[in-house]
Design a protein around this nucleic acid. Structure first.
Lengths: 226, 226
DNA sequence: TAGCATATATATCAATTGATATAAATTCAA
DNA sequence: TTGAATTTATATCAATTGATATATATGCTA
């Protein structure tokens, strides 16, 4: 006996037969991703989301249980989106685990990693900014903190820290490398936050090239032996 | 005729005779700074603030008009705090205006500026994080956006951009320099957001030295002629 | 096409929240 | 000390918000 009430499905899973339902589910999630990402959990009302998604209020409950559930679904979607978007650099991760790297290899991997990350974050369409969502949740922990911390933030920092240590041929301590890792990643997400504001004065150009160049410079600037 | 109701002062200004009032006003502002800074405008309720400040609800209205007014007062307080905290580097600002700088001078000034900024931001007591407040407001504009943008963000970016251009002896374009400026400043504020999370695994040590060293490295890495 | 699971819509509830009317208490100067 | 200005407290309002009970419509399969 798992559930007393077997009528009225408590939650709609992401996979099912009925096509229509999955579409509206996706539409709601899409809007929620945008709204929560831009304004945060408590600034957004369920009615706003329902309206923008073209559904009525109980639909949110029907598909996601409650507001918190919808927020968590967004977090999971973001994690998945990162995994997809950064699949090309999956090799980087495994490479660092395989064996110690020559410093120059580590630098190359770092550059590739940040280039891919910058491209991914700067290209996400529909003014959905997954990085902003994550940043907000890290800065002031909400319902989705644990997921995003465990699935994205911590592994990301660890990977970059590890690569930085190897790029410096051990010149940098774990702590020093960690500080640099956080600074570099933060610079990217912070840049994204500032982008709409920058676009006020400067044009709304494509910044990925400039950002990648700057990050390359930072990698190059890491302490090296000799 | 400025005001129909001359009874019941519509807002308590910051300066007045009555001592007690100014104290509670300051206490409310102090709590608001912490709460808004940590959680943002709409996550914080006026009751929370009133309770933590040891006053009752109408006190907020009495001193600040409404929630928005209190939030704006926080923004102004933050601007003032920045001005005070960064007074030592006021010279930097005037120096860049005086005359063109030799690249090495610009680098020195940049390092000093970031060192002071890092020290200031990493040392603000009472878990009040002015940078987080500003960052949030820039990332998703709220009632205090215009103030913080005009008084802090824009001038800060412009100053750093200007210094970076001079440090690179004109090798970097305005846009390239601006990207680097945003990245560097963002890295610092982003680091602050992540600090509580970092302190989870690593200790809650004093990071200002490490951060300043890393930022120095970034300044040193700026393109230079020859 | 019959019938049941799925999906959408209406109306409404209870709690929270920002705000105010109003009264009591306190402070300070003459 | 008196008295007016200032400050604090009580009680309450109206709007918003998340959530649900309930009814209707739609889609899929046998």
């Amino acid at each position: 006996m798992t559930n007393a009430k077997s009528s009225a499905p408590p939650l709609r899973a992401a996979v099912d037969g009925y096509r229509k339902g999955e579409e509206t589910r996706a539409r709601i999630l899409d809007v929620a991703l945008t709204e929560f990402g831009n304004s945060g959990f408590s600034s957004v009302t369920t009615r706003q989301i329902a309206k923008k998604a073209g559904v009525n209020l109980p639909a949110l409950t029907y598909y996601f249980g409650n507001k918190r559930g919808l927020y968590l679904a967004c977090a999971h979607a973001i994690v998945a989106r990162y995994r997809d978007g950064l699949a090309p650099v999956g090799e980087v991760y495994s490479a660092t685990l395989r064996a110690p790297l020559v410093p120059d290899e580590a630098r190359t991997l770092l550059k590739r990693l940040f280039a891919e990350l910058a491209r991914f974050l700067l290209s996400t369409a529909g003014n959905q900014n997954p990085a902003l969502f994550v940043q907000r949740e890290i800065a002031s922990p909400g319902p989705a903190f644990e997921i995003l911390y465990a699935e994205l933030w911590r592994p990301g920092i660890e990977l970059v820290t590890n690569l930085i240590i190897q790029a410096s041929s051990g010149l940098l301590s774990e702590k020093e490398a960690q500080v640099r890792a956080v600074l570099m990643i933060s610079s990217l997400t912070g840049f994204l936050s500032g982008l709409p504001v920058i676009a006020r004065t400067a044009g709304k150009a494509d910044y990925s090239g400039l950002v990648i160049a700057a990050l390359d410079g930072q990698v190059e600037a890491l302490e090296r032996r000799g």
